[in-house]
Amino acid sequence: MAATSAEKLPAAPPAEDMEQRFRRLRGQWSWDTRVLSDPAKIMGHPAMREIIAMGNEVVPIILRDLRDQPSLLVWALPKIVGANPPFEGNNDKMIEAWLKWGRDKGLV
């Protein structure tokens, strides 16, 4: 079952660009973790770990994804960038703060 045993990811196709790679990993992550509550399982999923390891280059892609489809993907941003922008409240507020941060930096 995907949500608890996704230790292996499908092989990456050759010549995959960063956006394609992100889409593939994001889709796998979402399928496997969307019904879970444990943040360690959500953020520790292999696809999420790979997204985070993509580093700063993936940040604009994540921001566009959050703009179009708000999600817990926002939890990846402080792990890549190092800290959250100031905000108070729930995950929607956290997403708003990151989108403002991205707009201020011309990333989204």
Binding site: S37, A40, W75
Partner: peptide, 14 residues
Amino acid sequence: TNNWWWPEGDAPTI
């Protein structure tokens, strides 16, 4: 319906 309840996790919204 405004909080993600869990005992562990480093996101500030938990």
